[in-house]
């Protein structure tokens, strides 16, 4: 028999998946345009684009709407990519940067930087918050992974230690808030609710840089991660160093989560829903699943950003609240429709 029939059948699946990735990209482009077109001032996109000599409109477009819209896309992609990699390496569909306490650790790091006014020598002040957020997230990751490895335990134990880490980090965050000034507490609250309103091009460049660094590294390990979906023993027997892969992924996830959390605060839902949407649409061949998760996360975040500016006229709600309120019913509907089709 020739090599044509199965390969040809499989190629149809591949083309279908490429079409879905194309559809997600198109939907993201539309959602991005809608996000830029929406704002509490009610000024339409056409007016903003046409106003070349109106400084106020240019500020609204270039310093408010566009940075927020771009940040929404980047943060959504970063969190969803992080969630997708975690779900694979921990073999747990509930894993996300929240599960291991990464987001909470990053928030604690950011809170410490604000409350204790920690500045890192030789670094601009913009960097001290994200660097500390990353350091705390990485520390939490290494601690959880190290504890699990010292017990000779696998992915489930990593998740259990991670859940314990969430509570420890929350307790420490409350402690920091307890001793903080009223002004600092208000800034910390900004993190815990999640908001895009403080986005700047400088911060966008930083998050974009992290994503541009991590995504290609993730894509280099797609076959190892796809094989891991067949089971840890199976992957090990193929020479895949599962523990090392898990550690590398967790470090990368810490970087992604910290970069996102540092500037927009705690947004937990995207890291969970992006991978699930991608899995529903594309399966788990990681060549498609990882980019699909990043696109789906960016799309949901972009829509949530639009909703945060539209739900209450004249008011921008924290986007973290909106992702949960609007996204979770959407997510449940998708899961139920998938179950009905199965």
């Amino acid at each position: 028999m020739t090599a044509v029939p199965l390969a040809a059948g499989y190629r149809r699946f591949i083309l279908g998946r490429l079409a879905i990735l194309g559809g997600l990209t198109l939907a993201l482009a539309l959602a991005f345009a809608l996000d830029v077109a929406t704002g509490p001032s009610g000024i339409r996109l056409g007016e903003l684009l046409g106003a070349t000599d109106n400084a106020a409109l240019r500020v609204i477009l270039w310093d408010i709407r566009l940075p927020q819209a771009v940040m929404a896309v980047l943060v959504g992609a970063a969190l969803a990519l992080a969630g997708a990699e975690m779900q694979t390496t921990l073999n747990n569909a509930l894993a996300s940067p929240f599960t291991l306490g990464l987001t909470n650790a990053a928030t604690l790091g950011a809170a410490c930087a604000i409350v204790f006014d920690l500045a890192l020598p030789g670094l601009p002040s913009l960097w001290s918050v994200p660097v500390l957020a990353f350091t705390f997230a990485l520390g939490a990751t290494l601690l959880v992974n190290g504890l699990a490895r010292s017990q000779g335990a696998g992915a489930d134990t990593v998740v259990l230690f991670g859940i314990a880490m969430v509570f420890v980090m929350n307790a420490l965050l409350w402690l920091v808030q307890y001793v903080a000034s009223a002004d600092a507490v208000q800034q910390i609250v900004f993190w815990t609710m999640g908001s895009l309103t403080r986005s700047t091009w400088e911060k966008i460049a930083l998050v974009g840089l992290v994503l541009a660094l991590c995504l290609p590294l993730s894509l280099r390990q797609v076959w190892a991660m796809t094989t891991l979906r067949g089971g840890e023993d199976h992957a090990r027997s193929f020479g895949i160093p599962v523990e090392r892969l898990r550690l590398v992924v967790l470090v990368r996830v810490s970087l992604l989560a910290a970069a996102a959390v540092s500037f927009v605060g705690t947004i937990g839902f995207i890291g969970l829903v992006g991978p699930h949407l991608a899995r529903l649409l594309l399966g788990e061949d990681h060549r498609f699943y990882l980019p699909g998760a990043a696109l789906a996360g960016a799309l949901v975040m972009s829509l949530a950003s639009t909703a945060s500016k539209s739900l209450v006229p004249g008011l921008v709600l924290p986007v973290g609240i909106v992702t949960a309120l609007v996204g979770i019913p959407l997510f449940m509907a998708l899961l139920l429709s998938q179950r009905r089709r199965a």
């Binding site: 499989y10 089971g231 992957a235 020479g239 061949d285």
Partner: peptide, 25 residues
């Protein structure tokens, strides 16, 4: 090596699970 436990019931296609095994090695 084929372990005693069966390959996991993942959303992978059977074809791509074999492709991944081949590509990983």
């Amino acid at each position: 090596y084929l372990p005693q436990s069966l390959p996991q019931a993942s959303p992978l296609l059977a074809y791509e699970s074999v492709l991944a095994a081949l590509r990983a090695t």
